[in-house]
Design a protein around this nucleic acid. Structure first.
Lengths: 121, 121
DNA sequence: AATATGGTTGAACGATTGCTCAACTATTAA
DNA sequence: TTAATAGTTGAGCAATCGTTCAACCATATT
């Protein structure tokens, strides 16, 4: 019980349905997986990054292209691309001065589609 | 062009691949949908909320049950449930003093599964 | 009515976030 | 070599976020 708690003593109430808690507790995914999952969704949880990923879903683009498309500065785009890079959601290749970014994960489209199903209701 | 920009003038560089930008721009989802999508993922982007949803994926639970399971206070759980309620991800029913929460959207499981595919690689 | 319990709420707090700005590197062209 | 352009980076700032705390409401029990 309290398997997902950093400090179980922080709970300020007693168990009402002990059987339910025990049953649910046994089937919860690993704590680490849940933390990683939240971290992934946090990356998706910004409109700038969603737009960037949505654009890259269609074509490889350089930083300037994305900046023009979204009407934002190169700097802010570059900052967000760094986050997407760290999350292994985008990859890049250099060609002279230009850095081309593209999707590193083919699941992004699926996740977005599932999300849009909820949004469009 | 710059369809997703609040203020297109904020862009500090000129178009390098105009054809790419134009093609991508035409196929981007509606701005509103992208904002809603980011907002949805933002809700998923917190480990406490992920744990709550993961628990409710298995059983209807009251606030105390969730608090005990996660080792947190009723107050913090209640605050997060309010956010999940506003996003129409959970629903509730009252039985006396007890408020039972359950999932309001059958897509949550699908979205989580897709996310875990990326995480577990 | 008084007490206890389940749950909600708003203010306050530290922590995190996203953008801006300025300085910087790297590559290309004159 | 100099200038221009593509991109990165770190500090700073306002805004947002999640938890705590205390007070509160609602229901049930005595």
């Amino acid at each position: 019980m309290c398997a997902y708690s950093v400090d179980a003593d922080r709970c300020d109430c007693s168990s009402i349905h002990g059987d339910v808690i025990e049953a649910v507790s046994e089937h919860m995914p690993d704590e680490d997986n849940l933390l990683d999952l939240a971290e992934l969704f946090k990356v998706f949880g910004d409109s700038t990054r969603v737009k960037i990923l949505c654009a890259l879903l269609q074509a490889e683009m350089c930083v300037c292209d994305i900046a023009v498309l979204l009407g934002m500065t190169k700097s802010s785009i570059s900052h967000q691309l760094r986050i997407l890079k760290q999350s292994k959601l985008v990859k890049y290749r250099k060609d002279g001065k230009v850095v081309y970014y593209s999707l590193a994960d083919e699941h992004v489209g699926n996740i977005f589609d599932q999300g849009l199903v909820h949004v469009c209701e």
